[in-house]
Write a protein that binds this DNA or RNA. Structure first.
Lengths: 202, 202
DNA sequence: GACGCCATCTTGACATTGTCAAGATTTGGC
DNA sequence: GCCAAATCTTGACAATGTCAAGATGGCGTC
């Protein structure tokens, strides 16, 4: 079922995987449909059998990313089920690490792939699922008195905003060099998160 | 000095202005050097007399944006010099409004234009200046007991992160529709900022 | 087991775009 | 008024997204 030389077998996933690889190696500007096709060993127009257009491939790559991130955070949730403070910090830290391991993919995931009226249900669904995941973490922290006891949705938006904002600013080189030299990332993350917490996060 | 039909006169600024216009009308994906040139009424390669490449134009458009944002926030600073709470909220709100008025330009400004080793001193400088501006606002708030009395740089990074993160998440359509329907933007901003403040921000 | 349908893949083509080289046109300094 | 430097145009090329037509072959039907 593999090397029939014409029918690839599982080209769709191969293309996604190729895209992730190129993204890691050459960045967003290097990500082209034709390169992805070549990497997967098919002709330049082959992707169109599986994706309507480039945006659709990007949506798929992003969706894949959300799913991986979801799994990683699930592991954290399991590991620190009874330690709310650690749970909060490590969840955020996992988010940050994911971003720094694959900066370009992370940016893609959070770049309005939602161009125009086109919709990608899988993308929206996986994104929503990740949000719910964070809400759950927030709820645990609220019960434990680590986070303010307010609307979970709102608190989640707040917490997510700090973390996402910090990650983005660092990733895009907006934080001045001098500041970055004086504080390592995890410290800055904890400090920033600490601004929102009701207790010390150390 | 204007219509000599060959020498434009002030093409550099005309190109930047054209870029801003296209960005607002067609978004990032519609921004091409050739369109910008056509919009300015010059040939497709004319921009190369003023910008090394597309990235350089983008850097210029971004720099311009930073300067405008700087001016807007300066006005806020002057207006609420003696009202720290209002100053904080309105500064953040101005930031947010800027982002929503020209979403695509805002995204460009904070997208690592810093590709590779290429450097754009003006861009870096204007970006740094805006950071200092926020630091000043933060210091005022610290003196007034509105924000924690900690390293101004760190507190600024925290505050900036929440605001920037919230703006980005909304801008990129990451905040679920149901959440957005129940809270207007300014309320969410104040709530989120309030998480960091030592006093009620209403 | 042969046949035909349909998904999958290839080839070829086209428009858009970033970029560069060569040349035309001005402007400003002397 | 003339020359050099700055500015702008024309023409070309390669990369890319996308589409149309056709090739290929797996799979179910008889």
């Amino acid at each position: 079922m593999s090397t029939s030389s014409y029918h690839h077998g599982d080209l769709k996933n191969a293309l996604i995987k190729a895209g992730v690889k190129i993204l890691a190696k050459e960045g967003v500007s290097g990500l082209s449909l034709r390169k992805v096709a070549k990497q997967a060993g098919v002709s330049h127009a082959a992707p169109y059998s599986h994706f309507a257009d480039k945006q659709a491939l990007i949506a798929a790559i992003s969706t894949e990313g959300f799913k991986q991130l979801y799994i990683q955070i699930e592991e954290i949730r399991a590991a620190y089920k009874n330690k709310p403070k650690t749970l909060l910090v490590e969840t955020a830290w996992a988010y940050m690490q994911f971003a720094f391991n694959e900066p370009d993919r992370f940016k893609l995931m959070f770049s309005s792939v939602l161009e125009k009226e086109k919709e990608y249900p899988d993308y929206v669904e996986s994104s929503r699922k990740n949000f719910e995941q964070i809400v759950d973490v927030v709820k645990v922290c609220q019960s434990a008195g680590v986070l303010r006891d307010d609307s979970p949705d709102l608190i989640t938006v707040s917490v997510w905003s700090v973390v996402h904002g910090l990650v983005m600013l660092v990733l895009e080189g907006q934080i001045s060099h001098t500041v970055l030299e004086q504080h390592d990332l995890k410290s800055m993350l904890i400090f920033t998160l600490g601004q929102m917490a009701l207790v010390e996060l150390t």
